[in-house]
């Protein structure tokens, strides 16, 4: 908690303090963090640095061939169903990002040659924002976005 208080003083932001506590209590517990889990990407506070850490590039071309299925209005931000599908070829990974969340990168899916580029899950959204899907296909990054209006934010607090 000392860490949290110091951060609140430093940054004048309760949010930043909360992240500090998260790091101190859970994420940094010794010997428990998975080697494969891309900590830098998942802790990044903005989309370009998350993408850079995850996929090795921070920019992506907008592609209408990525289809995002998500509600126009989500009454409960804690449970927003999102489906990402694309007809792009050689898809090796798909990432789902909620642009206004404190840590925007929500999920990353590594596909194999057997996979069909389709993933569906349910995500938390802090507030009305774009849900961004980033697809890595043939070594190039593509993205598309869909705005979701959130009535009640789902990140607690």
């Amino acid at each position: 908690m000392i860490d949290a208080k110091r951060r609140i003083l430093l940054k004048g932001s309760l949010a930043a303090g909360s992240v500090g506590v998260a790091a101190g209590t859970g994420l940094l517990a010794p010997g428990q963090v998975l080697a494969e889990w891309n900590e830098a990407a998942f802790r990044a506070k903005d989309i370009p640095s998350a993408l850079d850490n995850l996929m090795g590039a921070d920019g992506a071309e907008v592609s209408e061939r990525i289809k995002i299925k998500a509600p126009d209005i989500a009454e409960n931000g804690a449970v927003v169903p999102v489906t990402v599908e694309t007809d792009l070829e050689d898809v090796t990974s798909i990432a789902i990002i909620a642009s206004e969340n404190q840590t925007p990168l929500i999920a990353s899916f590594d596909l194999t040659p057997a996979s069909i580029p389709f993933v569906a899950t349910r995500i938390k959204m802090a507030k009305t924002a774009d849900v961004v899907a980033v697809v890595k296909a043939g070594g190039t990054l593509y993205k598309n976005a869909k705005n979701v209006k959130v009535t009640i934010g789902g990140c607690g607090g």
């Binding site: 929500i106 990353s108 993933v119 569906a120 938390k124």
Partner: peptide, 28 residues
Amino acid sequence: KHKDQVVMTASWSGGVSKNPYLSFKFKG
């Protein structure tokens, strides 16, 4: 995994909803 072959790996943050739902497709 499908028959001991990995068909998909997902990495998540805490931004995935409680009691997570996951759906994916594969060939073969």
